[in-house]
């Protein structure tokens, strides 16, 4: 497998972990961004491109890590230029846009990977393997929980640009709910947002009913600045139960004298075994060998569609029925 030539589009909050992942693959990376391209390039030893037109000839694929509302347009432009696309989740602001991106990629014969990185977090992959191995029997009731300090950039709270906590944060666990408990038939959701002294906070609470009859609860909080990142899940089947809580499964405890550390927006991950690096490696392997990755374009469309149902239910106060997943569920893929 040759080293990839990557156009990294965007230099914001998530770009650092993607940049590290590409560097770990020995990629030749060119950064294009409205803001911060040079600083990111300097930090990782990458080059920059001032325009997309300059970027295309230098790369085999692009990795889009810009604000959500720009994903579809950039992905379509990259596809039109014949480049493979890795796109940060959500694949697009709307499922219609997301589906258009998938269709364009198929027509152009390029590969498309929405970066649903939680599929590459080892605790979630281990849960999937345990479920598929029959360890807990038939899934009955599942809970997925994710919280952190609220992000600082304005666009995260601009529903039109980001879809708020549901499309930005909770979409990880909406994807997990289907990945681990099968297709969702029905959604009920409530959400709330408040302005506090330390900034804005938001929360959403979602009940999913799966076609199997299983129930999932998906719970998300963007909290005060001191709230550390944690995620957890508990999945009960008729023959057993799986439980994981990042806050209770720490492999190191560090207490330093000095001011208390604030919360963070991203999870702490093992830098030598990063799920971000694992997902980019899986995507590049899939491109190089024409194989499937653990995430497909249609999975990105589906996650946005569920998130839209969540937003619709939260807005109307009513239960929202989801159309059945139009495509076959993910194959086993290459689990990390």
């Amino acid at each position: 497998m040759s080293a990839p030539r990557v156009g990294l589009i965007g230099a914001g909050g998530i770009s650092g972990v993607h940049a590290a992942g590409w560097r770990a693959l020995g990629a030749d990376v060119v950064v294009h961004s409205e803001h911060g391209a040079q600083a990111l390039a300097d930090r990782f030893g990458f080059r920059t491109a001032d325009t997309l037109a300059d970027l295309w000839p230098q790369v085999d694929l692009v990795d889009i890590v810009t604000p959500t509302a720009t994903h579809a347009e950039l992905a379509l432009a990259a596809i039109a230029a014949g480049r493979h696309v890795v796109c940060e989740k959500p694949l697009a602001r709307t499922s219609v846009e997301a589906a258009a991106v998938v269709e364009a990629a198929e027509s152009a014969g390029v590969r498309l990977f929405p970066a649903h990185v939680v599929r590459y977090f080892p605790e979630y992959a281990a849960a999937r393997a345990a479920i598929r191995g029959g360890r807990i029997g038939t899934v009955a009731v599942a809970r997925f929980r994710r919280m952190s300090a609220a992000p600082k950039a304005d666009w995260f709270f601009d529903e039109a640009r980001s879809g708020g906590i549901v499309l930005d944060q909770m979409i990880h666990d909406l994807d997990q709910a289907e990945w681990l408990a099968g297709p969702v038939a029905r959604v009920f959701a409530r959400s709330t947002a408040k302005a506090g002294d330390g900034g804005r906070v938001a929360s959403a609470a979602v009940t999913l009913t799966h076609t199997s009859g299983a129930i999932s609860q998906v719970y998300g909080v963007w909290g005060h600045p001191g709230l550390p990142f944690t995620s957890s899940f508990e999945i009960a089947g008729d023959a057993g139960l799986l439980r994981y809580d990042m806050a209770r499964t720490d492999s190191a405890r560090i207490h330093l004298a000095g001011p208390a550390t604030a919360g963070g927006y991203l999870p702490a991950t093992d830098p030598s075994d990063s799920p971000y690096a694992a997902e980019l490696a899986d995507f590049w392997a899939a491109i190089s060998t024409s194989a499937e990755a653990s995430v497909r374009g249609v999975d990105g469309v589906r996650a946005v569609a569920i998130a839209e149902a969540v937003l619709a239910s939260a807005a109307s106060g009513e239960v929202v029925e989801l159309p059945l997943e139009p495509t076959e569920p993910s194959t086993e893929g290459s689990l990390p």
Binding site: A140, V141, T209, G213, I215
Partner: peptide, 13 residues
């Protein structure tokens, strides 16, 4: 206001 869903998969035996 209250919303609830239930099932009977656990301990169906």
């Amino acid at each position: 206001e209250v919303h609830a869903v239930t099932n009977r998969i656990l301990r169906a035996d």
